[in-house]
Design a protein around this nucleic acid. Structure first.
Lengths: 225, 225
DNA sequence: ACATATTTTAAGGTTTTTTTCAGAATGATA
DNA sequence: TATCATTCTGAAAAAAACCTTAAAATATGT
């Protein structure tokens, strides 16, 4: 398990490194945003621990570059004060979890460990796709500043699509997973919900699109414009 | 099962080796393109995992040497970033599957496993013929940079032709497989679809042609010019 | 029970796919 | 070469799949 620690306070950085290495993780530590982006481009990490206050590029800038490059590595953000707006910013910017300084060591390892669970059974708070992030706890769909609430079924459909971005999700699969295998739901139900989701994604000014491949199914993609 | 890992990032290489050996595969790891070609010439592998960015010879060059030597070992390409053109290149150059870095471990093993299924029941994501490759999931037909979407029936016809490039596929077989044995479809339906396909293949500037043998059927071939 | 939010249903519109058909082109045969 | 059968192709019609929206029906919370 490879972890990147991005934290300019060297004392803290060393401490975190120590803690994680004791748990058997392999860690790289960097001390500014630009170097972090370089490292992330070069090597595959399982988790990135990212401070917000950083020289050169700050945490949010790093985050948006990373997500912008289509890299979905789980990110644990370290926010200085407990300012609510920072937490919210971190999550809307595509982080998977955040922790407010000062924090408890046990708390810290627990969060990292949660993020290293292999995907699928990963306990994530947030599911990222493109510039969108779906908060799995609150059903909020966010893109940069904006955010909308998804209804239960909208949420389930979005989760299906964004959790398996490589595969094309058929209407049948959606019906089975969202409405239930023995339901009466028709293709039109799915179509209606895809339409609802598209409207909300458009409202968020996201670059994500839900593409239809006739007779096969739906698949999310990131558009160019 | 013998697997060759061609990846110059030693950390990643070791990780992949570990993963595959845990699953019971025997792995060799090499760190540059030339050595890879040597190994492949010497020993028979069941799957080759091939990075694109490599010292001495890059992934594409290795791929074309291997295929040029008439070696058909399934190849899983690792492309950095999700640059679409790289994916397309990998597939058109004769790879059997690709994976975008960074990737999920489960995803990786699943792909390798898919490629080690004994041929015939091989689960392929892509069907190659000449300079064309047909994405079996998305119904995209690609040739170098370009790519077009095939409709359901176009796709089925193309699949029939390219999956059995040695045999001449009769109209009857096509009708049975694409339209269904009890359908009303006439020979002209087949002719129309062959025409659609030819137009799209021409649009892609491919060297593949669909040849007609009077009163018998159709067969794909690679033209000289 | 009321207001609010969610889900279902249905109808009309749009787009894509498929079929049809007629004329042109090609190939086989005498 | 003339004739006939087969195949090719483009345009248009028909069908199917999909999208969107509004309104009706349900569900949920206060």
């Amino acid at each position: 398990m490879q972890i990147l620690i991005v934290e300019d306070d060297k004392a803290l950085s060393n401490a975190l490194k120590q803690i994680l290495e004791d748990k058997g993780y392999f860690c790289d530590a960097v001390y500014d945003g630009r170097t972090a982006v370089e490292y992330i481009g070069l090597k595959r990490y399982d988790v990135i621990v990212l401070d917000i206050m950083l020289p050169v590029l700050n945490g949010f800038e790093v985050l948006s570059k990373v997500r912008g490059a289509g890299i979905g590595t789980p990110i644990l953000m370290l926010t200085a004060r407990s300012a609510v707006s920072d937490k919210v910013d971190a999550l809307t910017a595509g982080a998977d979890d955040y922790l407010t300084k000062p924090f408890d060591i046990e708390e810290f390892s627990a969060r990292v460990q949660a993020l290293t669970r292999r995907r699928g059974e990963l306990i994530m708070n947030v599911l990222n796709y493109g510039d969108l992030s779906l908060n799995l706890k609150t059903s909020e769909l966010m893109c940069r500043e904006k955010s909308v609430h998804l209804s239960y079924k909208e949420f389930k459909v979005a989760e299906m699509l964004f959790a398996n971005p490589d595969m094309i999700v058929t209407k049948e699969i959606l019906i089975n997973n969202v409405w239930g295998a023995d339901s009466e739901a028709t293709d039109n139900n799915v179509e209606a919900y895809i339409s609802f989701l598209r409207r909300k994604i458009k409202f968020l000014d996201s670059r994500v699109r839900i593409k239809n491949i006739q007779k096969i199914g739906y698949k999310p993609e990131v558009s160019d414009d």
